[in-house]
Amino acid sequence: MYAEGNRGDVISDMQQRLQEAGSLKGDIDGVYGGDTVKAVKDFQRSRGFPVSGAIDEVTYRALRDINAGTPAPAVSSGGESYGVGDRGNDVKTIQRKLKRLGYLEGEADGIYGGQTEDAVTAFQKEQGISVTGGVNSETRTKLNEVYVAQTGDYILSEGARGKRVIHLQNQLLLHGYDPGVVDGVFGAGTADAIRRLQDETGLETTGVADEDVWDALDNAPYFRGKYTKTYHMRSTAYTPYDGGGEGHTALGGFAGKGHAAVDPSVIPLGSIVFIEGYGYAICDDIGGAIHGNIIDVGVDTLAQAYQWGTKSRVKVYLVR
């Protein structure tokens, strides 16, 4: 789900589609602000959807059916090179590889924007090749080499251990499929969570994190509508190592996306919540500054924390 406060290439694409639908009159700036909220509400009313002002799964799919910004098969403006402003299936392929390798956050939408440029720059620096922020033949060759060398590691099954399993478990949490303790060990709880995802998304039910499972986890988390209580809370974000932390939550799991710090007197530790604009999280952490009606969402990097920023009012649904 996307909501007020989100920003980036995906939001720009949604704004363009809202303009095509006649709902957005303002600028396309990649910032989900008040004008975008109003436009989403207008679009939802016109389609007979529940009116929330947030882009949930139903609204997202309807907007994706609008042709504006749909990735075209065209070659980039630079022949075999790609940079900001280019779009198409080749760009989407590049983005998916960058996501698999951990350089790109957000959706692989086929639009080469600032986030993709940052991801390419980070990849180039780490691989020791020319740093341009664009994908030329040198970068594409190196990206393919690294991807082929590592992609097999992304097919995970029971018995697997390590950082990729932690990432998998946190992504499952973020999408509402609780694997149990996030401990970096692919056990029965993780396999069961994957089976639930596969069953709900129409995939073969294997309990194995294959390419189709990773593709499903690449999509934005969406709210399934089941909850027992709602809160309007102030929200901040934190990385696993903020404040000299050791990367673990108060309840012992590995921190990051899919986790949140709360005041236990407001939301009990161990609760599962859905946070608009973020996704699902287990409330398994606390903090010295977390008192009263505030929720501190887990992120993986400092850049993601800055992107989330401080939100004065987010809607939080208590699931269980």
Rank of each mutant, 00 (worst) to 15 (best):
V51C: 12
Q16S: 15
T59E: 01
I55G: 00
A39E: 04
L63R: 03
V40E: 03
S52V: 07
V37W: 00
L18H: 06
G34R: 00
Y32M: 02
D56H: 05
R47G: 11
S12M: 12
G34N: 06
V31T: 02
D56N: 09
Y32R: 07
K25L: 12
S12Y: 01
D29E: 05
A39K: 00
Q15V: 09
Q15E: 13
E20P: 00
V58W: 15
I55Q: 03
G22H: 05
R61N: 08
L24P: 01
D35V: 01
M14N: 00
T59P: 01
I66M: 14
A62Q: 14
P50N: 11
L63D: 03
M14G: 01
G22C: 10
G53P: 03
L18I: 03
L63H: 05
K25W: 04
P50A: 13
D13G: 09
D65V: 08
D27K: 10
D42L: 12
D56R: 09
E57C: 01
N67V: 12
V31A: 08
F49D: 00
S52G: 07
S46Y: 02
P50K: 14
Y60E: 13
Y32Q: 07
V40H: 00
P50Q: 13
G48M: 08
D29Y: 00
T36N: 10
R17A: 04
S23K: 13
G26W: 01
D29H: 00
M14D: 04
G26I: 11
Q15C: 09
S52L: 10
A62E: 15
V58T: 15
D13C: 03
L63W: 08
K25R: 14
T59Y: 01
A62D: 14
K38E: 15
T36Y: 02
G30F: 05
R64T: 09
L18T: 07
G33N: 01
S23R: 13
V58Y: 15
D65A: 15
D35H: 11
L24C: 08
V37R: 10
R61L: 07
A21P: 07
G53H: 02
T59W: 04
V31H: 07
F43H: 03
K41W: 02
T36V: 09
S12W: 05
V31Y: 08
Q44W: 00
R17I: 04
